[in-house]
Design a protein around this nucleic acid. Structure first.
Lengths: 140, 140
DNA sequence: TTAAGTGCAAATCATTTGCACGGAC
DNA sequence: GTCCGTGCAAATGATTTGCACTTAA
């Protein structure tokens, strides 16, 4: 990894990740970056997403449903998956809170805890509002 | 789901999950249950693992590396993945702690948080010990 | 020049599914 | 007898990989 070369493709992928609030799948990244590099291949996208994740310049998010997602935001934060629409949202948790969770786990685990990821499940505001509307309609 | 029939295969799968501390992949479950049901198919194992998860009688664990894993322990608890050997361990967190995390998230999310899963990363005791030994050897 | 990166297509891996048959109720 | 569950094999979807060609350094 010491001898890594610059590549426009990787730069474009990183740039896209950094400027979107979505948490795109590899395929979405592919479709987007293809606007700038019409010949880029899905394989290259995967290779670079994994490279970025390994270098700590992106985060790979695994959910039980569907493929992995990627996030260009690398400061410690959590994610919320909307059970209704499937969108993934960022959720910032203050350092103190987050740190105390890792420490708690470390005290209770026979070994060493280094980090953690938390995935929250719920319903986003948009979906709540929609649900409300459909209930109103039914009561008419 | 109301009209669900008993099946020996599903019972055997559930029983296996309940009696192992490992967090087996579908394939591991398949290989084990096959000792009792030599003709069981991998498809059946997947179907039943998903059924059990949907009924809340098992938990599906997604990690960024490798396929999903299953856990017959369904009371609220967390998991630790060993960065060295890849094993998945249980980690009990008291109700209070766990509850307060969901509440914190709910206060900071534009919508409703219902639950969460946390995956810890670290090094298990076994791997720490091995690492120590190999360091000792090098210093000789 | 030369090693790393790319595009393409084929391969791999995990998981799901269609269908004919068997078993629970 | 009716439907749900099973076994099998084929299909699907996500991701990785081998290889000849490009390109950054």
């Amino acid at each position: 990894m010491a001898n890594m070369k610059y590549s426009r493709q990787r730069a474009a992928i990183k740039d896209y990740l950094e400027h979107t609030l979505d948490h795109p799948t590899a395929d979405t990244v592919y479709l987007q970056v293809r606007k700038e590099f019409p010949n880029i291949s899905l394989g290259t996208v995967y290779r670079n997403l994994n490279l970025l994740a390994d270098m700590g310049e992106a985060i790979k998010i695994s959910t039980p449903d569907g493929g992995d997602r990627f996030d260009g935001r690398v400061d410690p934060h959590y994610h919320v998956v909307c059970r209704s629409c499937g969108k993934v949202y960022d959720l910032t948790m203050d350092e103190q809170h987050s740190q105390s969770i890792t420490e708690y786990a470390d005290r209770h685990f026979n070994g060493t805890i280094e980090s953690h990821t938390t995935l929250f499940y719920g319903i986003c505001k948009e979906c709540e509002d929609q649900l409300e509307h459909s209930l109103e309609e039914k009561s008419n």
